[in-house]
Amino acid sequence: EMEYEEITLERGNSGLGFSIAGGTDNPHIGDDPSIFITKIIPGGAAAQDGRLRVNDSILFVNEVDVREVTHSAAVEALKEAGSIVRLYVMRRKP
């Protein structure tokens, strides 16, 4: 069973403070093209906020749908998102 969360982060000097993997051209798990959080960087915006978790998958960055995009398109969406970034994420319920 999945749960969904909308997380708004303010981009810090060091960016959003997380790493991603995945994409249609580089699936992270099997042939699932989802964009997954692979690392939360200590002291970064995501770590300070505390809600984003490793293995969360990002569905939307602001209004941009990143469910079926290449890795570089997801990176671009995050880069272009401005200083306030709304992430709509999905994760397995614990």
Rank of each mutant, 00 (worst) to 15 (best):
E1I: 03
M2V: 02
E3H: 03
Y4Q: 06
Y4H: 13
E5Y: 12
E5Q: 12
I7K: 00
I7E: 00
I7R: 02
L9P: 00
E10M: 08
R11I: 12
S14F: 04
S14R: 06
G15L: 12
G15F: 14
G15W: 07
L16I: 08
G17Y: 02
F18A: 08
F18P: 00
F18S: 00
S19Y: 15
I20A: 07
I20C: 11
I20N: 01
A21L: 10
G22A: 02
G22D: 10
G23I: 06
G23L: 08
T24N: 15
D25S: 10
P27N: 03
P27H: 08
H28F: 05
G30H: 13
G30I: 11
D32N: 11
D32S: 09
I35M: 11
F36V: 09
I37Q: 00
I37T: 06
K39T: 14
I40N: 15
P42C: 14
G43E: 13
G44K: 07
A45H: 15
A45P: 09
A45L: 13
A46L: 04
A46S: 08
A46T: 10
A47C: 11
D49I: 04
D49H: 04
G50S: 13
G50T: 11
R51S: 14
R51A: 08
R51V: 11
L52C: 12
L52E: 00
R53S: 10
V54M: 14
N55P: 11
S57V: 10
L59E: 13
F60D: 15
F60S: 14
V61G: 00
E63N: 09
E63D: 11
E63M: 06
D65I: 06
R67C: 06
E68N: 04
T70R: 08
S72M: 10
S72E: 03
S72Q: 12
E76A: 07
E76L: 09
E76S: 05
A77P: 02
A77I: 07
L78M: 05
K79V: 01
E80F: 03
S83Q: 06
S83E: 10
V85M: 09
R86H: 14
R86F: 11
R86Y: 05
L87F: 01
L87S: 00
V89F: 12
R91K: 06
R91T: 03
P94A: 05
